[in-house]
C-alpha cells in the first residue's frame, strides 16, 4: 500500500515537472516602469504596466548616412557602446558579438547597433574602416556616430550603460561592456556582459526566446 502511494507521488512530481517545462519562457523587462490606465479596443478601461522604452534617435552610420530608429523599428536589436581605438574590453566585446552576428546574420528580424563614445576621432569613415576590418559588411550591423551629448545621454538614461571620458584611463574613455537586448517595442529585455563568453552564450539562447514572443 505504501509502495502504491509512493508510486503515485513520483508520477505527480514528474507530471508537474514536465508541465512546468512546457510553460513559455519570457524574458524580463529592465528599467523603470509605471502603471497606466489604458482603454482597450472595446473601450473598457484597464490598468496596464508601461515599461521604459528607447526614444527616437538619429545618428550618422558608417556610410555617413543619417540613420534613425526607423532602421530598427519592428526588429529586435542588440546595442552596445564602444570606440575604435579602445584596447581594453572592446576587442573582446566585439569578438564575442561577432559570433552572435554570424549566428543571426540571415535573420531579418535581428539587428546590431554599436554606438561610438569617441566623438572626437571616430567619424563615420573611421567606423567604416573598423567595421570592414572586423569583418562586418552591409547594414545589419550599424556603427553610429553622434555628438557627445546625444550618445552619452542615450547610453546612461535609456540603455542604462555607464560611459564617460576619463583622462586617467589608458585610452581616454571608460564604459561598461554590456550588450543590451531591445525588443520590437523598444523595451530593454536583457543586458549581457560582452566580455564574458557564458553571458554571450546566454544572449544567443535568449534571442530566439524573444523572437518567439512575437510569433503568435
Amino acid at each position: 500500500m505504501i509502495k502504491n502511494h509512493f508510486f503515485i507521488a513520483i508520477c505527480l512530481a514528474l507530471f508537474t515537472f514536465f508541465y512546468a517545462c512546457k510553460q513559455d519562457k519570457k524574458l524580463p523587462f529592465y528599467g523603470e516602469r509605471h502603471a497606466e490606465t489604458v482603454k482597450d479596443a472595446n473601450g473598457t478601461e484597464k490598468i496596464d504596466t508601461v515599461y521604459q522604452t528607447i526614444p527616437n534617435w538619429s545618428f550618422l552610420n558608417q556610410d555617413s548616412v543619417v540613420t534613425t530608429n526607423k532602421a530598427t523599428d519592428g526588429k529586435i536589436y542588440i546595442a552596445d557602446f564602444f570606440f575604435t581605438s579602445c584596447t581594453t574590453i572592446c576587442p573582446t566585446m566585439h569578438r564575442n558579438l561577432m559570433t552572435v552576428y554570424n549566428e543571426f546574420k540571415s535573420n531579418p528580424d535581428v539587428m546590431f547597433v554599436s554606438h561610438t563614445i569617441d566623438f572626437k576621432y571616430d567619424k563615420p569613415s573611421v567606423l567604416k574602416k573598423y567595421a570592414q576590418k572586423l569583418g562586418v559588411d552591409g547594414s545589419k550591423w550599424q556603427f553610429l556616430y553622434g555628438t557627445k551629448d546625444s550618445v552619452y545621454t542615450l547610453a546612461e538614461k535609456n540603455y542604462l550603460v555607464a560611459v564617460g571620458e576619463d583622462s586617467t584611463a589608458k585610452d581616454g574613455y571608460i564604459h561598461q561592456g554590456y550588450l543590451v537586448l531591445i525588443d520590437k517595442d523598444r523595451r530593454i529585455r536583457g543586458a549581457y556582459d560582452g566580455t564574458k563568453e557564458d553571458q554571450v552564450e546566454q544572449l544567443k539562447r535568449d534571442i530566439p526566446v524573444l523572437l518567439a514572443e512575437y510569433k503568435k
Partner: peptide, 9 residues
C-alpha cells in the same frame, strides 16, 4: 588562442 581579431589585430 592567438587567433587575432579580423584585420584589426
Amino acid at each position: 588562442n592567438g587567433e587575432g581579431l579580423g584585420q584589426l589585430a
